[in-house]
């Protein structure tokens, strides 16, 4: 095309007279104010730490003076009572079952909650605000709180543990997943809408394919959290190995307690590692 050649603009000449002379180079900004600010913040943190230590009655004397008691505890605990081991198998399986059910139930509920609590996906702004508020409320409560709540609501036992972990999982995973949903490529959503797709279709075809990898990864992560949490849930009466731990602690059978701690540690570590490997492989 002839117009192209004739209409190419002339390259503009760059004048380079002051090159290397240093003229016009900006002064580095004054950092003194920043340094003073950092000093004030650091001093403040030290002050808060000392104040908190005084408040909880922290004392080096008490810490170091009681080392002999720790010594006696260790003496009582070792060697572990290995013969107690067969009585741990069933509670351990129960602990794992609680974690599996809590994870599955929690993640299934977390999925719609996360979609409604993602600003870019929620069908209406008010739905987003309500979901986000509910999600934040849920997250302020720790797993042990849920366990205590459900243990008194539905009686002591594994079912309370499952309910507690479901609540805990929804709180953690819906937050993570809603943030993933807010970070997806939104342009595809417009394409699905332009084709005449409604909200459900847009979520199914534009949002879901983009968040599947995150969802799978978070499910495994929730399982790892829940395996750890479910070992201590029994301490407040929500089933599993923790209930055995509580009983043995209350009768000062420290050689059994140490066995429970060691076995739980081993199981948690092994399952966590397997889950981590699966997560890496899948995502």
């Amino acid at each position: 095309m002839s117009t192209a050649a004739t209409m190419r603009p002339a390259a503009t000449q760059v004048s380079g007279t002051t090159k290397g002379s240093g003229a016009g180079r900006p002064e580095p900004p004054d950092r003194l104010a920043g340094r003073v600010g950092m000093g004030v913040i650091f001093a403040g943190l030290v002050g808060i730490t000392l104040w908190a230590g005084k408040l909880v009655g922290f004392s080096w004397g008490e810490l170091l003076g009681n080392l002999d008691k720790v010594d006696r505890l260790v003496d009582d605990s070792f060697p572990p009572e290995w013969a107690f081991w067969p009585r741990l198998v069933d509670p351990l399986l129960e602990t794992i079952q609680i974690a599996v059910l809590g994870t599955a139930g929690g993640c299934l509920i977390a999925l719609p909650v996360a979609l409604l609590a993602a600003r870019t996906v929620a069908p209406r702004p008010w739905i987003y605000r309500v979901s986000r508020m509910g999600m934040n409320l849920l997250r302020t409560m720790p797993d042990l709180f849920w366990a205590m709540l459900f243990a008194s609501a539905v009686r002591f036992g594994p079912f309370a543990g499952v309910l507690a972990l479901i609540a805990f999982t929804v709180a953690v995973i819906s937050k993570l997943l809603s943030e993933s949903a807010e970070a997806i490529d939104l342009s595809v959503l417009e394409a699905v809408r332009a084709s005449g797709g409604g909200w459900i279709e847009t979520v199914r075809f534009a949002v879901w394919p983009q968040i599947i990898p995150h969802f799978v990864s978070y499910t495994f992560y929730a399982f790892e959290l829940n395996i750890r949490a479910s070992t201590v849930l029994g301490l407040v009466g929500a089933g599993g190995i923790g209930m055995v731990l509580r009983t043995q602690l209350s009768v000062f059978e420290y050689d059994r307690v140490i066995l429970i701690v060691l076995v739980s540690l081993a199981v948690v570590l092994v399952i966590e590692r397997i889950s981590e490997m699966a997560r890496r492989r899948l995502v």
Partner: peptide, 15 residues
């Protein structure tokens, strides 16, 4: 919208 097809600069496929 169903009667109006749209094509985009950045394709907008679900990859």
């Amino acid at each position: 919208r169903a009667k109006v097809g749209m094509i985009f600069q950045d394709f907008r496929l679900v990859r």
